[in-house]
Amino acid sequence: MELVLTAENFEKEVLQSEKPVLVDFWATWCGPCMRQGPIVEELAKEGYAVGKVNVDEQMALAQKYQVMNIPTLLVFKDGKEAQRLVGLSSKDTLKKAMDL
């Protein structure tokens, strides 16, 4: 299951995670985001650590990570942003970014 990320749990679930974490910044009114959703869900089912940030509810997180387009997908490793993918990304692309 994908984690619902908020300003409160972001530090613990993402920045302190031992595994790389894929973070999907999204919103309900964004067509491409709604297509991205099922793709990250599949990755979560396959055992990848995946979290979702609803930008409507978590504007501060979006601002902090300078997210200005959605969907934006960030891969965090060791508490740092290691990859940034802007726009709808395929499962293969995301897997490659996670496995790097």
């Binding site: 919103a27 009114w29 491409p32 985001c33 979006a62 997210v67 200005m68 387009n69 959605i70 726009g87």
Partner: peptide
């Protein structure tokens, strides 16, 4: 800051 989708990104 560069975007290709106003309906997606206007919010920001």
């Amino acid at each position: 800051g560069v975007s290709y989708c106003a309906v997606c990104d206007a919010f920001f």
